[in-house]
Nucleic acid binder design. Sequence first.
DNA 1: GTGCAACCTCAAGGTAACTTGAGATCAAGC
DNA 2: GCTTGATCTCAAGTTACCTTGAGGTTGCAC
Lengths: 146, 146
Amino acid sequence: MDKNDLLPIGELARRTGIAVSAIRFYEDKGLIAAYRTMGNQRRFLRSDIRRLSFILIAQRLGLGLAEIEAELSTLPQGRTPSLADWQKISRSMRGQIDKKIALLTLTRRKLDECIGCGCLSLQRCQLYNRDDRAGNGGTGPRFVLD
Amino acid sequence: MDKNDLLPIGELARRTGIAVSAIRFYEDKGLIAAYRTMGNQRRFLRSDIRRLSFILIAQRLGLGLAEIEAELSTLPQGRTPSLADWQKISRSMRGQIDKKIALLTLTRRKLDECIGCGCLSLQRCQLYNRDDRAGNGGTGPRFVLD
DNA sequence: GTGCAACCTCAAGGTAACTTGAGATCAAGC
DNA sequence: GCTTGATCTCAAGTTACCTTGAGGTTGCAC
């Protein structure tokens, strides 16, 4: 580990487009780790650029930081993830996307039925039924019609 | 308007599955309006059940309360929305779903390419490119690689 | 006419994902 | 060796979407 390979936080920020404050926040959350200089400044590995990039991608896929941390914990800290590492995580993320798409497609179908009938009726409207609630996530309402 | 048609907040809560506190919150945000009794208690119209139900559906589609308010403001307050009212909004929501699905499908395709190459490289990986950033929304990072 | 559930307001708390600010220290060029 | 920009910590603020709690009032049934 050449000393020149260690990046200060500002450098990492510039390379990833992530704010310095956000990187510190991620470290706090355990998503990334840093060495410290004698003067207590953070020093990161080059491979952390990819680690952070992974966080960006995963966020776009709708994962929360906690979920991302779970995925990341399967990656080795301190070395660039191997092809196998990365593929494993990617496939898992693909599954998440598939689920999201399926849910949206279902909702769209039900909405179409609703446009047809124009009911907006609690009794009949498919949109109110519970079978597509899973994966709702978010901070939305706790339940949709008991 | 028969007095018996006016619902107290608890009744509305029971009928929609939305917490009393949330209904008050929505009123505060202007998503719903209420009459008041002489004793200052809220009284809602029957049609507000549907109005609230609409909020639930729209939230599931990923709209924020502000956006929902925008849609709702095209509905008449105080009467059950007509078939035409409802269809107009439904179609608009359908458009939103379509967009989301398209975005996810694109992301999935890129992820597939990435699984293939295993690169996770800032320079080459399609996932980092900007052309699918629109609709990101959320509280995520402010930008993904300048 | 009284008891008690349901209602009221207003302030503060909770989570996610960060940012901002204050006040202090570090590192590196000249 | 000094200045200046980068970094540090820690606390508090931000937005969205609500919930919880305190302290007080209303309305309906008996």
